[in-house]
Design a protein around this nucleic acid. Structure first.
Lengths: 237, 237
DNA sequence: TCGTGCGCTTGATATCTGTCAAGTGCGTGC
DNA sequence: GCACGCACTTGACAGATATCAAGCGCACGA
């Protein structure tokens, strides 16, 4: 878990983030100078819900699971892939984290002091606009997730998840699940046992699974069942 | 449904909104000049999910239900009470609405052209900061709602909802439900029939209900069951 | 190569939640 | 005052989902 200053080599990747792409050069450099990079092994808890938010986190490589707990139960809320940020809202509000975060694999995380982010926000209008855009985007993502949960059964959620992944995989009809099934179950709001049964229940619609490998033989058939909706399933809108 | 320019009499109430309280006077006047106020009867659909967002809406009186539909099903996502705004995220992103909105009762709604909001955002740093704060707040609210849905049973959601309302009612142990039970059921993600049964199931914990009137005889007992958590139930954090 | 562990699957069962149908109670309007 | 509508309740039932226990299979390390 070596703590390093921010090496300049990562600047370009961070720059490519929508959040930072339009920031003035001097602001960007100030932000980066206060930041640092850490390497984490798998399964390390980066932040714990309820703690106060001192850093904006940026996943440079690996992946991070955002999860929440209550009364001994736990659920996966989202997964963060490179290159993107998380807990922006808590950073902005200077409020306690609502979710915990843990690495899923070996990961490189950049940490930008929350205070620097707030200062840059005041100094650079482009950065402010980017933050607003990012927050609005995040808000809309969660609303979609909530619609997904409240309006669909677990089987329908799985079917639409598969269609989403299929689209994400260059529209081929075969692809691999991006993470282990127990986590997928938690993300979809169901138990691992139920996920197993759900995969079998989708066989009549042309879904076959072997290990992590999915094959969809009749996309239209699956779509007829899943009824994907851009206002729930499209990441962009 | 008379369409009026914005009467100056409503300026003070809007000014009191966190979103507008710090805006420079000239910016505020510009925003208000482009805006107007409409009176709506109950049960009128103000916006429809999927439509493009032309106005930021501000509820001045009455109340508004935000709901979503999919595949013939419908669910209440949130209720907006005076004085507050809704669909800020869609306005900012210039993206289609993810939720529909309908008046629950006779309501006065102010409509501010989205474009004016975006212009004011660029011109006034205080306004920009307020928008960021509002969006971050909204984001956190939805995250809490999602945790509520994924981590709790419907009975637990109801118990915590009652505790929340009790706190909201000056901490007295008797209060009235703020809206009809069928909507409450939808908000809590259950059917009206199940809500009925859930109320009966809470009787052993000291909850009695008669019509819209709730009485909690043993607050501590109910809390022991509900296990309220600030990271799910507190509106502020 | 052979355990061993762990994630996954499967079946039996319990619990939760939704659906359908009927009934109750209250308010509105004729 | 009475009939009607509508929200709500209740009961019986069905379907969805979780739980528990056992077994499978693959990857890893001794």
């Amino acid at each position: 878990m070596a703590r390093l200053g921010m090496p300049e080599s990562v600047y370009p990747e961070i720059r490519e983030l929508h959040l930072f792409s339009e920031v003035a050069d001097d602001q960007f450099m100030t932000l980066m100078r206060g930041a640092y990079v850490q390497n984490f092994p798998p399964r390390i808890e980066l932040i714990t819900e309820g703690d106060s938010s001192d850093f904006l986190h940026i996943v440079l490589s690996g992946s991070v699971d955002l999860f929440s707990t209550w009364n001994g139960r736990e659920t996966s809320m989202a997964t963060v892939w490179p290159v993107s940020t998380f807990i922006l809202a808590a950073t902005i509000k200077d409020a306690p984290y609502l979710m915990s975060a843990r690495t899923l694999e070996k990961s490189r995380i950049a940490l930008v002091p929350s205070q620097d982010v707030r200062i840059a926000f005041d100094a650079d209008q482009c950065f402010a606009r980017a933050i607003v855009s990012e927050l609005a985007q995040s808000y809309r993502s969660v609303i979609k997730a909530q619609k997904n949960l409240k309006l669909r059964s677990s089987l329908e959620r799985l079917a639409n998840y598969l269609l989403q992944q299929q689209k994400h995989s260059d529209d081929v009809t075969e692809f691999d699940l991006r993470f282990e099934k127990r986590r997928l179950a938690s993300v979809l709001g169901m138990t691992p046992e139920n996920l197993s049964r759900a995969f079998k229940a989708l066989r009549p619609y042309g879904v076959s699974i072997e290990g992590n490998h999915i094959e969809i033989s009749d996309l239209e058939d699956l779509k007829r069942f899943a009824k994907p909706d851009p206002l729930i399933d499209d990441p962009e809108t």
